[in-house]
Computed example of a mutant assay.
Amino acid sequence: MTIHSLYIYDRHCACVYYQDWHRTRRPKLAVEGGIMPAVSQAVSAHPAEINQPSLSTAGSTRNTLSSGSGAAASDSPSPLLQTPVSAASALMTSGPITSTGLSFDEEAKLVYGVILSLRNMIRKLSGRDEQFVNYRTSAYKLHLFETISGYKFVMLSDPNTDSLRFVLRQIYVGPFLEYVTRNPLVSMDSTERGIDNEYFRSSVDRLVRGMSIFA
């Protein structure tokens, strides 16, 4: 069993964060203007310097993302990051990486469209109290956790994986609240910028890789 990728959507239906692990078929780079800055430079059309440092590094380091892996890096490596994402990213896949044929902005829209359609269908067929939490195909399983504020955490995993909704909730109550919500340098509910920053990406990576189902 393994975990493929993580998407975070805001209440405006926009993908504000992306990270992947075991993916042998990745989307093409997003078209110019297709996604907001600071979502993931691994899929950005024009990787650029991140001007949104986390709270504890404001004014001291310049935070960037590796264009090849979406991994976090900085001019002055922080002692808090004992396992750099860039080093671990080399182990994400076993074998050549191929393309899905879709650009990332198209893929992100398709993922959100599936969630919206299935959620609406479940509410109409089963009542408003019924929740959509996951669905499975022969190739993957999609897990959903939605916050009261409208953020949607979506994870794709191996189809035989048990529900990972608790993992998405851990990401929300842990790294998300700590490095995004409580960080005054992150523009929440923005229609112009994503939420990616060095400590959030590294913390999510450590949390996911520390799970027993991660292979």
Rank of each mutant, 00 (worst) to 15 (best):
94 S>F: 01
79 P>C: 06
136 R>Q: 14
79 P>Y: 13
2 T>D: 00
31 V>Y: 02
49 E>N: 03
39 V>I: 14
93 T>G: 03
142 L>V: 13
43 V>M: 04
122 I>F: 15
4 H>N: 14
200 F>D: 03
176 F>H: 10
194 G>A: 06
120 N>P: 04
111 V>K: 04
145 F>E: 04
41 Q>D: 13
13 C>R: 11
5 S>E: 11
10 D>E: 04
163 S>P: 00
211 M>V: 09
204 V>S: 09
134 N>Q: 13
100 T>H: 00
193 R>T: 14
194 G>T: 05
167 V>A: 11
130 E>Y: 11
143 H>A: 09
169 R>F: 11
137 T>G: 12
47 P>G: 04
113 G>K: 03
78 S>D: 14
51 N>Y: 13
41 Q>R: 07
146 E>I: 02
103 S>H: 08
127 G>C: 09
30 A>I: 01
162 D>Q: 10
145 F>D: 01
109 K>Q: 12
143 H>N: 11
84 P>A: 12
80 L>S: 12
142 L>G: 00
90 A>W: 03
206 R>V: 12
96 P>H: 02
46 H>N: 12
63 N>R: 06
90 A>C: 12
190 S>L: 06
141 K>H: 02
66 S>P: 01
119 R>E: 15
10 D>Y: 06
178 E>H: 05
123 R>W: 03
62 R>D: 12
208 V>Q: 07
119 R>H: 12
101 G>L: 00
143 H>Y: 08
180 V>F: 13
154 V>M: 07
199 Y>A: 05
130 E>W: 10
28 K>L: 15
1 M>V: 12
107 E>M: 12
117 S>F: 11
8 I>G: 00
112 Y>E: 09
75 D>N: 15
95 G>P: 04
147 T>P: 00
181 T>P: 00
189 D>L: 13
99 S>A: 05
147 T>L: 05
167 V>Q: 02
120 N>I: 06
98 T>W: 08
176 F>W: 11
117 S>I: 07
142 L>T: 15
151 Y>E: 12
34 G>K: 00
76 S>Y: 14
190 S>V: 10
72 A>M: 15
68 G>C: 03
15 C>N: 15
102 L>E: 04
139 A>H: 07
103 S>F: 09
31 V>G: 05
33 G>M: 06
126 S>R: 12
100 T>V: 01
107 E>I: 02
56 S>W: 03
44 S>T: 05
145 F>I: 03
180 V>T: 05
124 K>P: 00
135 Y>I: 08
64 T>D: 09
173 V>Q: 10
68 G>P: 01
118 L>T: 14
51 N>P: 01
125 L>E: 14
117 S>Y: 10
